[in-house]
């Protein structure tokens, strides 16, 4: 009976067969447009360098080659180094942000916390007004002295008010008050209640915010643009920005041959560049379809006010 009802509900919502086909084709084309550029980049990275020079970028090149990837391990030191920086920053940053946001959210979600309203406002105000790029830059470089310091890539994103809101909603809907109260009656302290009872119940929420945060750290190049000059601390995304800038500088100063040599030495070949783009994209492309459920949950929970 229930099964039958479910089927009618889907039918009512659905298009007629003709419209269904039309919109399927439409959506399929759009979906392909979202994937094709990346596939194209993979093909370019696997194209023989001479083919790239002669024919440019092609969807189906005459000669395939993996020299770009072999070259990466030689040009390597910088790419490997940058990959290391990115992984370090992503791991440490995600742990910090998730911990700090989850604990903050728990405190302001508990009615028995006397300063709950104050700390809720204290965080929410920051969503109403942006402090601005320059004042933040001055604080990080002048007051905290984090220029050319790996913490300049971590600390500016080590807490997220949006994550706090997601977690607060999560605690309120997924962690029954009765469980917390009964644990308290049994004599458990607030810290123990949080660590042993609340956190296990909130795992889906924690997964959601940590995925968002990890993505943010992995994709960040802005903080590196502002604070990092030292080659050893350049994350992968900013390395891509830098190579692009060097290429552009090369085009602009084509007449000044003295600079040409120095800039050209910094620039890997076409295929190698695209191989680096593939390496920066692949971890996201391979993992996000599995975590998509959590992402979608986070996106829709964040939209709920409360």
């Amino acid at each position: 009976m229930r099964h039958k009802k479910h089927i009618t509900a889907v039918d009512i919502r659905s298009f007629s067969a003709g419209a269904n086909l039309f919109f399927n084709i439409f959506l399929a084309l759009f979906a392909i447009s979202c994937l094709v550029p990346f596939i194209f980049i993979i093909i370019i990275s696997l194209t023989k360098e001479t083919d790239l020079t002669i024919f440019g970028y092609q969807f189906w090149p005459k000669h395939f080659s993996i020299t770009s990837y072999q070259y990466l391990s030689k040009f390597g030191s910088q790419v490997v180094r940058s990959l290391g920086v990115t992984i370090f920053v992503t791991v440490i940053g995600t742990i910090m942000n998730t911990m700090f946001s989850a604990t903050y959210a728990y405190a302001i979600s508990r009615n028995e916390f006397r300063y709950r309203r104050f700390f809720t406002m204290f965080a929410l105000v920051s969503m109403l007004f942006a402090p601005g790029m320059i004042p933040t830059y001055l604080v990080v470089t002048q007051m905290l002295n984090l220029r050319d310091n790996v913490w300049a890539l971590i600390l500016p994103m080590a807490f997220g008010v949006y994550n706090v809101l997601i977690m607060r909603t999560f605690y309120k809907t997924q962690v029954p008050d009765a469980i917390v109260e009964s644990a308290r009656i049994d004599g458990a302290g607030d810290l123990r209640i949080f660590a042993q009872i609340v956190v296990p119940l909130a795992v889906p929420g924690i997964a959601t915010i940590s995925l968002f945060t990890a993505l943010g750290y992995w994709n960040d190049w802005m903080n590196a643009l502002l604070y990092i000059n030292n080659d050893n601390l350049v994350p992968l995304q900013y390395l891509l920005v830098r190579i692009q800038n060097n290429m552009d500088a090369l085009v602009k100063s084509a007449s000044q041959s003295a600079q040409l040599g120095a800039a050209a030495a910094q620039i890997p070949t076409e295929g190698t560049r695209m191989a680096m783009v593939v390496i920066a994209t692949l971890p996201i492309a391979l993992t996000y379809p599995f975590f998509q459920k959590y992402f979608v949950k986070g996106m829709t929970i964040g939209g709920v006010k409360g």
Binding site: F100, Y104, A107, R110, R114, Y115, A123, D190
Partner: peptide, 11 residues
């Protein structure tokens, strides 16, 4: 409220 204050402190 010391435990809650500790929890909000880093944020």
């Amino acid at each position: 409220n010391r435990v809650f204050l500790l929890l909000v402190a880093p944020g």
